[in-house]
Design a protein around this nucleic acid. Structure first.
Length: 701
RNA sequence: GCGGAUGUGGCGAAAUUGGCAGACGCACUAGACUUAGGAUCUAGCGCCGCAAGGCAUGUGGGUUCGACCCCCUCCAUCCGCACCA
């Protein structure tokens, strides 16, 4: 493997950082999503302060300090701690390192930089060792002329802020640990708030040891110091973002071409009449000779000096919803009148895995198009609903180290084993189908031996992301073939709240399937054929009369529930409401078109195929998609009495059927006369009777 | 470490505004129909108890006439970010 520098294009998303942050307040996203984007953008308000540097070792030797033209500029969010700075840390890659390192420290610094370079990013993140090296140089605190040793350490990142920090060990945990590790004396500027055992990042402490800031509460001192450094011309207020510009070119894959051509090493955009730039037809998508994209393999493309990188997937995914509004327009991507008409995407259902990618890029893209006047809004998605992930349920086998023997999960503690994913498709529950396992991966385990428990090989199990690499993927095609797409769709909805993740488990799918069959039987009998009836006798020989009050009550109760549940994305309870409805209609032996037809219409989004099929079976010639949603009428569900729960001291003891409009005065004597209530009162007088109309009755004794 | 979420029967879950905990479904038990049942129907099904009743929404506390729901403590699991000064 060889590391190579490649030409890359970047999307200047950092230009939009602040607006992407502001915009979050105007959209209906979950808090988790807003939090993720906010953290990713990582806005921080602070100051850049520049420090004079002197090479102290020269001074000590009595020679003239070497005049250093470069100053050390640090970024801090806590300028109020300026008098607590006990050392500086610059990143090992910082350009100043070479300039300021003293002769005495040169060897050590070089050794340290070699060490840092030897470590991969992964190692650096995984093991957080405290490492560092003194440069021999000192920065001068501009307020009290105190010399501050300058160190280098890998914990300071070159890419953030100025790549250098002022370390305040009494207020920052990492700085504190660093100071302890290298025995750097710690200045306490927060009085009692610092205990010497750990740093305290409070902003509430009154400053001590801080010259002109003494006695001022830290959070109030921040602006004071910023003003002061601005007056002195040694720094300025500065806002930083953690977010980086997004790499916007790809080499390995086919993607949209850049409308860019090169001339003498300079990139020029193609003129309008050269657009659209279309990709050539190719047979092979292999990468170009020097790790460039596939386009570098195409002579006519290269001859025109066109850019050979292609765009990443999110180039298209950032704005496709606009094209969907006006897909056949060959003049512009989407006519302004059209996008004004459709406006924002009302509801976007997607997973959180796109939180800091696609969902951030589309927001930026929309803002750019808005700025250019192509669309009239700068947020793409009005509301975002995060559906949970269907996770995989992984199975593991345990191979005894250095052997081809596998030990059943219950016995694995007796051996040194390696855990391997086994394909869930040949595990029944947790029992491994050994023969299938032996044939797996072209017989890689054909000669494996197995240590069984009770004659079975038991696998370990864990819930993980569903992924091919974990061999825990299941193919929905099998289920669709067996139960149909409607059952599959409805079962997914029935599993639980949409926004919750859960492992894929088909245990309950039968229930949904039975429901659909039961629905079917309201229309058709296995032997008799069609059994639905018409309300008006003249329309059919199967006349059933008017729908009864009970039938209409079931229907309208369901209309209300489905409307409400769908509106609040509570699909699992909506499915259950359909089940209740069909159960009730079956109990009532209701086969009336007048009642069944509205149920079908409501069912369309949940089980579209069967709804349409039954709709057609009823003799409708249009599509059920064009039918209008049934209208709820309260009169059919109105009750005249209510079964009130009666509690004594909050514990349910009995229920009473009472007039819906009964008042507290009327209730009290009825309740007190009740046999069960009398029994529980045991002759004692009640202190209070709580009566909540339409809800409950509670007697306090 | 920081941030977000979630904990309710054997299982998936419901309880929408603080007011009957467990709707609906799976699994299970018994029965009916049947040549048959991986079809359908009936009944039962949180735990303890013969019953009356008691106990139950991760733990411990608080507020309230009343808490799965509000507040505090702790525990567990999942997800995201992970040295961002």
């Amino acid at each position: 493997m060889v590391k190579k520098k490649l030409r890359q294009w970047y999307l200047r998303i950092t230009e939009y950082a602040d607006r992407l942050l502001q915009g979050l307040q105007t959209v209906d996203f979950s808090d988790a999503m807003k939090e993720m984007q906010t953290n990713w953008i990582g806005k921080s308000i602070g100051a850049e302060i520049s420090f004079e540097i002197k090479a102290a070792s020269h001074e000590q030797e009595g020679t003239k300090p070497k005049a250093l033209s470069s100053k050390l500029i640090v970024y801090t969010t806590r300028p109020d701690t300026i008098f607590g700075v006990d050392f500086m840390v610059v990143s090992p890659e910082h350009e100043l390192v070479k300039l300021i390192t003293t002769a005495e420290q040169k060897a050590e610094v070089e050794k340290y930089i070699d060490y840092v370079n030897s470590r991969s990013e992964r190692e650096r993140m995984a093991e957080k060792k405290i490492t560092g090296c003194f440069t021999g140089a000192y920065a001068i605190n501009p307020f009290n002329a105190k010399p501050i040793p300058v160190w280098i350490s890998e914990y300071v990142l070159a890419g953030y802020g100025t790549g250098a920090i002022m370390a305040v060990p009494c207020g920052d945990e990492r700085d504190f640990k660093f100071a302890k590790h290298f025995n750097i004396p710690i200045t306490n500027i927060i009085g009692d708030h610092f205990n010497g055992e750990e740093a305290n990042d409070t902003k509430e402490a009154k400053l001590t040891n801080s010259d002109f800031l003494n006695g001022i509460v830290m959070k109030d001192a921040i602006d004071l110091v910023v003003k002061q450094i601005e007056t002195l011309g040694i720094g300025k207020k500065k806002i930083n973002y953690r977010m980086r510009d997004a790499a916007f070119s790809r080499q390995r894959y086919w993607g949209e071409p850049f409308p860019i051509k090169w001339k003498d090493g300079t990139a020029y955009p193609l003129s309008e009449n050269e657009l659209p730039l279309l990709l050539p037809k190719v047979d092979s998508y292999s990468p170009g000779p020097e790790g460039e994209g596939p386009l570098a393999n195409i002579p006519e493309w290269v001859a025109k000096e066109l850019e050979t990188n292609t765009m990443p997937g999110y180039a298209g995914s950032s704005w496709y919803f606009l094209r969907y509004m006006d897909p056949h327009n060959d003049v512009t991507f989407c006519d302004r009148k059209v996008s004004d008409y459709w406006n924002q995407v009302d509801l976007y259902i997607g997973g959180t895995e796109h939180a800091v990618g696609h969902l951030l890029y589309s927001r930026m893209w929309t803002k750019a198009l808005y700025d250019l006047g192509f669309i009239g809004y700068d947020e793409p998605f009005k509301k975002l609903l995060n559906q949970g992930m269907i996770q995989g349920s992984s199975r593991f086998v345990y191979r005894i180290q250095g052997t081809n023997k596998f030990v059943s999960a219950g016995l694995k503690s007796q051996y040194e084993t390696n855990e391997l994913h086994a394909d869930v498709n040949f595990v029944d529950g947790v029992e491994l189908d050994i023969e299938a396992f032996k044939k797996w991966r072209n017989g890689e385990y054909a000669n494996a031996e197995f240590i069984l428990e009770d004659g079975k090989y038991i696998c370990g199990a864990e819930v993980e992301k569903m992924s091919k690499s974990k061999f825990n993927t299941v193919n929905p095609d099998d289920l669709v073939a067996r139960y149909g797409a409607d059952t599959f769709r409805m079962y997914e909805m029935f599993l639980g709240p949409v926004e919750q993740s859960k492992p894929w488990d088909t245990k309950g799918i039968e229930g949904v399937h039975r429901f659909l069959k039961k629905l079917w039987r309201l229309f058709f009998d296995e032997t008799k054929g069609p059994i639905w009836t018409e309300s008006a006798p003249s329309l059919s020989e199967r006349a059933g009369g008017e729908a009864t009050a009970e039938e209409l009550k079931t229907l309208h109760k369901t209309i209300k529930k489905i409307e409400d549940d769908t509106e609040r994305f509570s699909f699992n309870t909506a499915v259950s409401a359909f089940m209740v409805c069909v159960n009730e209609l079956a109990d009532l032996k209701c086969n009336k078109r007048e009642v069944l037809e509205p149920v079908l219409i409501m069912l369309v989004p949940y089980a579209p195929h069967i709804a349409e099929e039954l709709w057609k079976a009823l003799g409708n010639s249009n599509s059920i998609l064009d039918a209008s949603f049934p209208i709820f009428e309260a009169k059919y569900v109105a009750e005249s009495t209510k079964e009130y729960p009666v509690s004594i001291n909050g514990k349910l003891r009995t229920t009473l059927s009472l007039d819906i409009n009964i008042s507290q005065q009327e209730v009290e004597p009825i309740v007190l006369a009740n046999e069960t209530v009398q029994k529980w009162l045991e002759g004692k007088a009640q202190k209070k009777i709580i009566f909540v109309k339409g809800k409950m009755i509670n007697i306090v004794i």
